[in-house]
């Protein structure tokens, strides 16, 4: 058996890549492409999806995924595979602030259920839902590697640890005042 390790093949490479994304988005993706061997542009697919998702208010669309495929010379299905495999990509609209609450074992021991209850009551939504005003999405996530600060959640790029209902309130208060990150 011969072992092969090659990028996904795409024969119909798109020529007009400039038209796909804004110059800023392209520059950011290009920075990632530069990290990998020339023929392995697809290594930048995770970064590209993240960049494009951030640029689109936190979620991906079929059109955006196709553009990423075109930009990186990947078959679209290979991009869909990546976008549906990793949990940080959102495939439908999310709120301005995505609250990712860890409920895994250490957080659970330290009372994450109370935090979830409190969040659900305060926001009037259940896990997996978005508030009507589109400000908050509540998402249950797996261990975020901050068990020493359990219970915890992540909003945007920020970790919030050692949560109590009072602390949750003050975090949400400040986010509500600050419209959009």
């Amino acid at each position: 058996m011969t072992l092969r390790c090659e990028p996904w093949a795409r024969a119909d490479k798109r020529a007009d890549k400039e038209s796909l994304f804004s110059p800023q988005v392209r520059a950011e993706i290009d920075q990632w492409i530069a990290k990998y061997p020339d023929e392995w542009k697809q290594s930048a697919v995770m970064a590209a999806l993240r960049i494009v998702q951030d640029d689109n208010g936190g979620y991906l669309t079929e059109e955006l995924m196709n553009k990423v495929a075109d930009y990186l010379d990947m078959p679209p299905i290979a991009v869909y595979e990546v976008a549906t495999f990793y949990s940080m990509y959102e495939l439908s609209k999310v709120g301005t602030h995505k609250i990712c609450v860890c409920t895994n074992v250490s957080c659970m021991i330290c009372g994450s259920e109370n935090i979830v209850d409190h969040l659900e009551k305060r926001l009037g939504i259940k896990l997996g839902q978005t508030t009507e005003d589109g400000k908050f999405t509540l998402k249950e996530v797996e261990c975020l590697g901050a068990c020493g600060g359990a219970p915890m959640f992540q909003i945007g790029r920020q970790y919030y640890e050692n949560l109590t209902p009072e602390l949750v309130d003050s975090i949400l208060d400040s986010l509500e005042q600050d419209n959009g990150e």
């Binding site: 390790c5 990028p7 996904w8 990290k35 990998y36 392995w40 542009k41 697809q42 290594s43 930048a44 697919v45 995770m46 970064a47 999806l49 993240r50 990186l72 990947m74 290979a78 595979e81 990546v82 495999f85 990793y86 949990s87 940080m88 990509y89 996530v141 797996e142 261990c143």
Partner: peptide, 24 residues
Amino acid sequence: HLGAGAYVCGEETALLESIEGKKG
């Protein structure tokens, strides 16, 4: 290289696949 949320990528060969722009 930044991951995107998949515990299994901590498995070393899944991690390699992930760097290669594939599912982990």
